[in-house]
């Protein structure tokens, strides 16, 4: 993946904006931002963004490639869509933030241990394996993501909630040993593989070696 990162640097040396437009979901909208800051002011986690959305847009235009892609800012997006609803220029900001996160992930530039990146990957792995999400396995996986000792501590802390979820029939211990899944899991895996190949081709096409 770092090879892909190098290829992209070579290809778009002069313009990170062009790179974003070509490779990031809804990235062609970035140049429309007029820096009003309504998105940043509307974000429920606004104070936690090192670079709020409108700043990221400016940094993209200023060629701050590394600072943008290595930032954990876009991982603060809760997908509340306030920014989309309020942007006077109609930018699909939520999607651009997701797109930047996906692209940073693809280039292996996400900060280590970024919790939402880790959790999101567990979520994706679960659904792409079984077609449906296994809530219990993701929950347990999340507890233990920082090692066994921390996991036991987390699990003890969450024990009361776990018991309450069981009691109200909203969690099933048996889910750990299989659980809900689609019938055509192999079909879903094939479909996702094909979709991923298609998307990879769209990006590698720009390094001049393929496509």
């Amino acid at each position: 993946m770092s090879n892909l990162n190098q290829a992209m640097i070579e290809k778009y040396r002069s313009s990170f904006l062009n790179e974003v437009e070509a490779n990031v979901e809804e990235g062609h909208w970035v140049k429309m931002c007029m820096q009003c800051g309504v998105c940043s002011g509307s974000c429920p986690l606004g104070p936690h963004w090192e670079h709020p959305p409108q700043e990221l847009f400016m940094m993209i235009r200023a060629n701050e490639r590394e600072a943008v892609l290595k930032s954990d800012s876009m991982w603060m997006c809760t997908s509340c869509y306030n920014c989309i609803a309020r942007c006077p220029r109609g930018l699909p900001i939520t999607h651009i933030m997701h797109g930047l996160a996906t692209y940073a992930k693809r280039l292996n530039l996400v900060p280590k241990k970024q919790p939402t990146a880790e959790f999101g990957q567990m979520f994706w792995d679960s659904l792409s394996k079984n077609g449906r999400v296994n809530e219990l396995k993701i929950g347990v996986g999340l507890y233990f993501k920082d090692g066994f000792a921390q996991g036991v501590k987390n699990a003890m802390a969450g024990r009361e909630l776990g018991m309450a979820m069981m009691k109200t029939q909203r969690m099933n211990a048996m889910e750990y040993f299989g659980g809900h899944k689609c019938k055509d899991t192999s079909g879903i895996q094939k479909m996702l593989k094909k979709a991923q190949e298609f998307e990879d081709q769209q990006i590698t096409r720009f390094d001049g070696k393929e496509g």
């Binding site: 979901e25 997908s79 997701h98 797109g99 996160a101 996906t102 992930k105 693809r106 939402t116 990146a117 959790f119 999101g120 990957q121 979520f123 994706w124 792995d125 659904l127 792409s128 996702l192 979709a195 991923q196 298609f198 998307e199």
Partner: peptide
């Protein structure tokens, strides 16, 4: 949250 693992397509 799927975007952390899966791209647009």
């Amino acid at each position: 949250i799927g975007y952390a693992g899966g791209g647009e397509v």
